[in-house]
């Protein structure tokens, strides 16, 4: 994959993809200490699409994907993944589900005490794939090439810049060939050039690994570049759903303030 050669916008590439829902979120609600964060949210993620979830800070976007990853338990509603509600999954089923899941955390969440190589080995060893040492090395080199950072393999996370950490974190999530990718604010805290590179990488991952992705962001440039479809959350509720053109041409003041 070459970052420089990738197309500028992604929203015209989805028409050839399947319409099977991979994740089906129905009437999900979540509250913390009685304060509602998500209320009656229903969203579907279709196979092969990049779904961008937009919204102001504090509207429950991160809580939503943490519920999808099973890191938080939703109070009401269902989150069906591959046809099964994650709330009813046993711990072994959750583990199997997570082996098909990639999660790019807002902070990168690289393990500070491990080198880049050890960070990449960590999910690979636990993915259930029985790979030889040589196969693992090949895989590590492949994902590092894909994110454009083969030279940092023996560095510690503290020696990397913010953008590099995000890329290595992305490499760590794609190393297990996930079917679903969850991106939590992938461009937050990065300069515009690096943000653009990360957005390009998200599209590259979608094309190369055929992933279905949910991208949580309030970065409109990232949303425009990566989205096949957009949903907007406001005060914990689903505010609007549509494609990029719908949102760009909307006269709704809330959406307008985001896009212009």
């Amino acid at each position: 994959m070459n970052i420089e050669n990738t197309q500028s916008l992604n929203h015209n590439t989805f028409n050839s993809l399947s319409n099977d829902p991979v994740i089906n979120i129905t009437n999900v609600a979540k509250a913390f200490a009685g304060v509602p964060v998500l209320q009656d949210v229903s969203i579907q993620l279709y196979k092969g699409e990049n779904l961008v979830v937009l919204g102001k800070s504090g509207t429950g976007k991160s809580v939503l994907i943490k519920c999808i990853a099973g890191l938080l338990r939703h109070d009401k509603g269902t989150i069906d993944v591959f046809g099964k509600d994650i709330k009813t999954m046993r711990s072994r089923e959750i583990d199997e589900y997570r082996q098909k899941l990639g999660f790019l955390f807002q902070s990168g969440a690289l393990y500070d005490s491990m080198t880049v190589k050890q960070n990449l080995e960590f999910p690979l060893v636990r993915s259930g794939k029985k790979l030889s040492k040589k196969e693992m090395e090949l895989k590590i080199n492949e994902v590092l090439e894909n994110v454009g950072l083969p030279e940092v393999i023996n560095k510690m996370p503290s020696e990397l810049s913010g953008g590099m950490r995000k890329r290595i974190s992305l490499a760590r999530t794609i190393i297990v060939d996930p079917l679903i990718m969850l991106y939590d604010e992938p461009t937050t805290g990065l300069d515009p050039v690096t943000s653009d590179e990360i957005s390009t990488l998200i599209n590259d991952v979608q094309m190369k690994y055929k992933t279905s992705s949910i991208i949580i962001t309030h970065d409109i440039k990232c949303a425009l570049k990566t989205a096949n479809r957009i949903v907007m959350l406001h005060e914990g509720m689903l505010y609007r759903e549509g494609n990029v053109d719908d949102f760009e041409s909307s006269t709704d003041p809330m959406i307008h303030s985001f896009f212009h």
């Binding site: 997570r98 999660f103 690289l110 636990r126």
Partner: peptide, 12 residues
């Protein structure tokens, strides 16, 4: 820094 969450997502 969400490293514990990342570990959990890695089925660990």
């Amino acid at each position: 820094t969400e490293q514990i969450d990342a570990m959990e997502v890695s089925s660990t």
